[in-house]
Computed example of a mutant assay.
Amino acid sequence: MAPDRQPAPARGVRHGPRPWLVIFVVGLLLWLLTVAVTFSTRNANLIPTLVLLGSFLVPVTFVAWAFDRAGPDGVLTPQRLMAAFLAGGTLGVLGASVLESSLLRPSPWMWLGVGLIEEGVKIAALWLMAARLRPHRPRDGMVLGAAVGFGFAALESSGYALTALLTVKGLSLTDLVQTEILRGLLAPFGHGLWTAIAGGVLFAASARSGRLRLTGSVVAAWLGLSVLHALWDAMHAVAAALALLFTGTDWQWHLLETGYVPRPTSAQVGFITGLQWGGWLVVSLVALGWLRALARRTRPLDAAAGERTAPSWPGWGER
């Protein structure tokens, strides 16, 4: 008579705050402390610490949050997510830099070109990070895609922070901090969200065959995400054009006809800011709705893949 199969050990019930919340709170306190000490001492050696903490805090927090929600039956581990965040994000940034400098020139279509390139290289980096991952559960694809996207966002934000620091009047810590705050607030709705969608679509297209495939749905997702990316990047220019169209004065139109771009009035600056944030909100809602619909549609594939998945690693995997 065959011996009875031993039941799987019950997962421990974790009490206390979630890891992502601990990461955010502790990281935020450290960043605020670094800001205070840097401003009070004017010690330039602290600038790298300020840049790294401010640029990586929100992306790392959201990767931990996504991993916490991935479910206990996935195959992702913290090591794989760390590799996707660092290696995938770095490969994406490097690939985008090479392609953009080689292929893009100033034109009305430049924003779309940036979107196509950056979303394309992130999907390529995601594909590389998922090459040996089995099975392809769509929810795991979303989490792994978020890790690649947030890694890209963290590295990109550190570059923007350093650029803001360097001004014609010297180093500006105020501009650096303001840039980090703005990009930290916007980080959850950009690269990480878009690449999470790409990961879900890619894994859903590959779930039944057991291997990654470039299907029509993956190409359609790449094109759709590129359009959202282009709209996000061009939103300030779009808002400025709309402000000029609806509130432009005679002298501004005269300057425009002579080939000069007129400066907005103080009232128009507020109008442009409102339009820009409103546009970002619309793009974010579209992307969030897309991700939610994708998660619902692929839930049966998640369940089927979960039945074939080995237990997750202890510790981090226990939820």
Rank of each mutant, 00 (worst) to 15 (best):
S101V: 04
G113V: 06
V227T: 05
L285Q: 11
A147V: 02
L103C: 03
F203E: 01
A239N: 02
A153C: 11
V168E: 15
L291T: 00
A146C: 11
R263G: 13
V93Q: 14
L53M: 11
G12H: 11
A2Y: 07
W232R: 07
A146V: 05
I181Q: 13
T77R: 04
I23D: 15
L291G: 12
L171Q: 09
R137E: 00
F39C: 10
P7H: 07
Q178N: 15
F152K: 08
L166R: 15
R132P: 03
I23H: 14
A295P: 04
V177C: 10
N43D: 14
V60K: 05
S172Q: 11
L32G: 04
V227R: 03
F246V: 14
L214R: 06
L32N: 07
G145V: 01
V60W: 14
F39V: 13
A220M: 06
A44P: 07
V22L: 15
G159S: 09
M235V: 10
D175V: 13
H254C: 08
G92V: 00
L288S: 11
P9V: 12
W222S: 08
I181L: 14
K122R: 03
A293Q: 13
E100L: 09
L76S: 02
S284I: 08
S217C: 08
G317S: 05
M1V: 09
G274P: 05
L242S: 05
